[in-house]
């Protein structure tokens, strides 16, 4: 889902950088409002490492193979730290492995980072104070609710990333290529992204359940 160099016109690259700059500024402002902004940096740094490596590990799903993006998990666990963390992870992927590109770093951060922030807000709904219907949940119900939200965060973030990616690519098709063939290939790849979204959702549920059992304070 990384857009390589030279696939979008310069105006789109610049717009991507502008949006990324704005969202990074907003995220950093939210982070600096915390009581101890440095407290979550180790957590953010370790998840950035996982994000950085995840794109190199291929999971074969016929006819092709996918790699986990983990942006939903990053959003759910890191909150506003997720956006700068994803931007940094993408920079290293582009610089070391040409996965994505430096000119498209901004647009890639938008594709993967903004869904992460939305996943964060979705996952926050597990807080009883934010529930739409404020009736009391039993512990069992609360656990199930957390799992549903974790799945929604993981699968939703990836699905949204796939949609933004598809829209950016389709609206910027180079006139030189056969647009119909390319569009069909993209629509076909959406099926793959759908499977990947379910996988990411399941993985997010597993990880969140594990953390909740072992070290619940990480989710605070």
């Amino acid at each position: 889902m990384h857009i390589p160099d030279g696939f979008v016109p310069p105006s789109v690259s610049i717009a991507g950088y502008a949006i990324t700059g704005g969202v990074t500024w907003y995220s950093l402002r939210q982070i600096s409002r915390e009581r101890n902004p440095q407290e979550k940096i180790p957590k953010a740094s370790l998840l950035t490492a996982a994000f950085f490596v995840a794109s190199l590990i291929h999971i074969p799903i016929p006819p092709t193979s996918i790699h986990l993006v983990l942006n939903g998990i990053m959003g759910a666990i890191l909150g506003y730290y997720a956006f700068p963390a994803i931007a940094i992870g993408l920079f290293f992927q582009a610089a070391l492995f040409q996965h994505g590109g430096l000119s498209t770093l901004g647009i890639n951060a938008v594709v993967m980072g903004i869904p992460a922030l939305l996943a964060y807000h979705l996952f926050q709904l597990r807080d009883p104070a934010l529930r739409v219907l404020p009736h009391r949940f039993s512990t069992q119900q609360q656990k199930r609710w957390t799992k549903i939200l974790a799945f929604g965060a993981g699968a939703g973030a990836l699905g949204l990333s796939a949609i933004i990616f598809t829209v950016v690519i389709i609206t910027n098709l180079s006139p030189d290529i056969d647009a119909q063939t390319e569009r069909n290939a993209i629509y076909l790849s959406l099926i793959g992204y759908g499977i990947q979204a379910v996988l990411e959702g399941i993985f997010t549920v597993m990880l969140i359940s594990f953390i909740e059992k072992v070290k619940p304070e990480l989710l605070k």
Partner: peptide
């Protein structure tokens, strides 16, 4: 390269 990158992130985590 991946290991070096990961070590950079882990080191940052340890530092903070």
């Amino acid at each position: 390269m991946a290991a070096v990158g990961v070590w950079g992130f882990v080191g940052t985590a340890l530092f903070f």
